[in-house]
């Protein structure tokens, strides 16, 4: 029997697993009583959590409370309260957001810096940067006041990758072409590695080792993107 996919059961319930991973978990569940129990417990927690809805108080009770309140402005409408409570993240989402935050924090700092330092002469005094390039505009998907405000838009690995590539594309003309080519070649090398791992998983969906390896490879890509974002900050 393969290793227990305990850590992936939550994502399985949330429907966040890729098809191959989902199939693998399902295969395992068919024969593993322990994981079936864990899954049932997790589902029970989810069901109970969903049952914890806000119920408006009985009118007569509310009237009594209302009379004792000096300042009604502190009362938060129920819908607002519900909306606030929906702003929650699963652990993988928080992890992804944390990684994205690193990339974004660097990028945000770089934007702030580029905005204050570029000035009238039009380009930074850096030999590795082309001085004749126009100042790029901020990507629409990153249209938020602070990096923190962008967390909600970065809940997946793919989103982080797409936005980073958008970032790189916009600043391509300002960066040393050789450096851009190097970064892209290395990201492509990681992508190729990830592709090989995915094929291996398709051929052997029971291998938890490959799933872990796949996760490590994606993390590495995020790390390289982070490093590249740092370069962009330094050289523009």
């Amino acid at each position: 029997m393969s290793e227990h996919p305990t850590e992936r059961l939550s994502a399985y319930i949330d429907g966040d697993l890729a098809a191959a991973e989902r199939t693998s978990v399902e295969h395992h569940l068919e024969t593993c009583a322990d994981c079936q129990r864990v899954l049932a417990d997790l589902r029970g927690i989810v069901v109970r959590a969903r049952a914890l809805e806000d119920h408006p108080p009985e009118n007569d009770l509310w009237t009594g409370i209302e009379e004792q309140l000096d300042d009604r402005s502190i009362v938060v409408p129920l819908e607002t309260h519900r909306a606030r409570r929906r702003l929650s993240f699963t652990l993988p989402q928080m992890a992804a957001a944390a990684v994205a935050l690193i990339v974004l924090s660097v990028s945000a700092a770089w934007w702030a810096r580029s905005g204050t330092e570029r000035g009238a002469n039009g380009g930074p005094p850096v030999a590795a940067v082309r001085p004749d390039s126009a100042t790029p505009t901020q990507p629409a998907s990153l249209d938020c006041e602070t990096a923190l405000g962008c967390i909600g838009t970065y809940d997946t690995y793919d989103t982080a990758v797409v936005d980073f590539e958008e970032l790189l594309a916009m600043y391509r003309d300002r960066l040393d072409p050789e450096t851009v080519a190097t970064v892209e070649a290395n990201l492509a090398a990681i992508d190729q590695a990830i592709e090989e791992i995915v094929k291996a998983i398709d051929a052997d969906p029971e291998s938890t080792q490959l799933y872990n390896y796949h996760s490590s490879a994606r993390q590495r890509r995020l790390d390289v993107m982070r490093q590249a974002a740092s370069i962009i900050r330094t050289t523009t």
Partner: peptide
């Protein structure tokens, strides 16, 4: 102690 295909 363990050397199945796809495993460490």
């Amino acid at each position: 102690t363990e050397a199945e295909p796809g495993k460490a």
